[in-house]
């Protein structure tokens, strides 16, 4: 065959294969979003946000689950951000090349891919069994354990990307290393740090398994963190498996809410990161 033609054909095949793979991935995403929207949007009413979950056959909403998710994800993210950013900073700026640093990084990577149900069992043994009760605190800790390695990893990666010249310039003015990191390096890396937080949040916002062992679920509105607490994923799990149509409808609404929350927090986070960078 003509050499030029052969090259054009192989090129075409390769581009075609890449395009096809992208199309398959996108189709799956669109189908998921489509089924979420078509099945969830109908049930999206005001009472979803104002009323707690109903008994089968009666009216109600997801307020208890929404509040529970916000409280537990919120506390979990606070823990994960504090621990993760500090740990990532230590790895990137201070101890990353020591033996201890290598061990920490390796364990963090292991934790990064740890099955979430194991984390749930671990927190059950740590915080539920000894205190003889499920609690939202335990749920938040389980979520924090899942988000922390993600935040740690992205923090380390993004700080390592900052040029050494920036650190030297800060130190050359007489600033201490810690001050340079806090006032210059974190600022320069802000977008990346926000991304790390968003990735962590996206991971935990839909986690069900670790919450089943820790916060359990609660059919009533509860804001006491020391008590069992409802959450969107566990409620979806319970409702979707049930035989009642109205519960299943609410499960779809809950799934749609999680998707909307993750999407909007992503968008808001990116806008914030961009604006403060200017």
């Amino acid at each position: 065959m003509d050499r030029a033609l052969f090259r054009r054909v192989t090129n075409g095949i390769f581009v075609g294969a890449c395009g096809l793979a992208t199309l398959i991935a996108l189709t799956a995403l669109v189908l998921i979003l489509w089924s979420l929207i078509t099945k969830g949007i109908g049930g999206l009413e005001l009472k979803v946000f104002t009323e707690s979950q109903p008994a089968p056959g009666s009216e109600g909403g997801l307020a208890n689950a929404i509040v529970g998710s916000i409280l537990m994800c919120g506390l979990g993210m606070v823990i994960a951000l504090v621990v993760g950013i500090l740990a990532g900073t230590w790895l990137a700026e201070y101890g990353g090349q020591t033996t201890y640093g290598h061990v920490v990084r390796f364990l963090n990577d292991v934790l990064l891919s740890a099955p979430s149900i194991l984390v749930g069992l671990f927190v059950y043994e740590l915080l539920v069994a000894p205190f003889h009760g499920f609690s939202a605190y335990a749920g938040a800790v389980a979520l924090a354990i899942l988000a922390t390695p993600i935040v740690t990893r992205t923090t380390e990666d993004i700080l390592a990307l900052q040029p050494n010249a920036l650190r030297e310039a800060g130190m050359a003015l007489g600033a201490s290393r810690a001050f340079v990191i806090r006032s210059i390096i974190w600022k320069a890396a802000r977008t990346g740090l926000v991304t790390g937080g968003l990735l962590g949040f996206a991971r935990i916002s839909g986690e069900t398994a670790p919450l089943l062992f820790t916060s359990l679920g609660n059919q009533f509105m509860n804001t006491h963190m020391s008590q069992p607490m409802a959450s969107l994923p566990t409620t979806i799990f319970q409702f979707a498996l049930s035989a009642y149509d109205d519960w299943q409808r609410l499960a779809w609404v809950g799934a749609l809410l999680i998707a909307i929350a993750v999407l909007s927090i992503n968008i808001i986070g990116r806008i914030l990161a961009r604006e403060t960078h200017r």
């Binding site: 040029p163 010249a165 920036l166 030297e168 800060g170 050359a172 006032s183 210059i184 600022k187 960078h277």
Partner: peptide
């Protein structure tokens, strides 16, 4: 320094 190093502020 060799390369300009303005701080992100």
């Amino acid at each position: 320094f060799q390369k300009p190093t303005p701080f992100p502020m």
